[in-house]
Simulated scan of single mutants.
Amino acid sequence: MDFKPIKTKKIYEEIVEQVKQMIVHGDLSPGDKLLPERELAEKLQVGRSAVREAYRSLEAIGVIEIKPGEGTFVREMGSKSMTDIISLAVLTGKNSIAELLELRKIVEVEAAALAAQRRTEEDMQMIQLALDEMENDIKKGNLGDASDIRFHYAICAAAHNSLLIKLMSSISETMKKEMFTVREKLYKTPGTPARLFEEHKNIFEAIKKGDPHKARATMFINLDNAEKGFMKG
Results as ranks from 00 to 15, higher is better:
39 E>T: 15
6 I>C: 03
53 E>A: 13
99 E>H: 11
213 H>Y: 09
3 F>S: 06
13 E>F: 07
67 K>S: 10
191 G>E: 05
8 T>M: 02
162 S>E: 15
8 T>Q: 06
65 E>H: 14
219 M>N: 05
177 K>A: 11
61 I>L: 11
147 S>M: 06
72 T>R: 09
3 F>W: 15
64 I>Q: 00
75 R>K: 15
164 L>R: 09
48 R>A: 11
41 A>R: 04
66 I>W: 09
12 Y>H: 13
47 G>M: 00
33 K>G: 03
142 N>C: 09
217 A>F: 05
184 E>P: 00
156 C>D: 11
38 R>E: 11
87 S>A: 13
198 E>K: 12
69 G>R: 09
23 I>T: 00
227 E>M: 10
222 N>F: 15
68 P>L: 13
189 T>I: 12
32 D>R: 10
15 I>Y: 11
74 V>C: 02
175 M>P: 00
213 H>C: 03
51 V>R: 03
156 C>S: 12
104 R>Y: 07
153 Y>M: 06
182 V>Y: 03
179 M>L: 07
174 T>M: 03
67 K>L: 15
16 V>D: 01
151 F>H: 09
200 H>A: 04
70 E>F: 14
183 R>P: 01
15 I>Q: 02
148 D>W: 10
191 G>R: 11
144 G>W: 01
38 R>W: 04
217 A>E: 13
38 R>T: 12
152 H>V: 10
108 E>F: 12
143 L>Q: 09
195 R>T: 15
113 A>L: 06
185 K>P: 07
12 Y>W: 13
125 Q>S: 04
90 V>E: 02
206 A>C: 13
80 K>F: 13
121 E>G: 11
117 Q>W: 01
187 Y>I: 10
182 V>R: 00
233 G>M: 08
57 S>K: 13
81 S>I: 08
112 A>N: 04
139 K>H: 10
100 L>Q: 12
129 L>W: 01
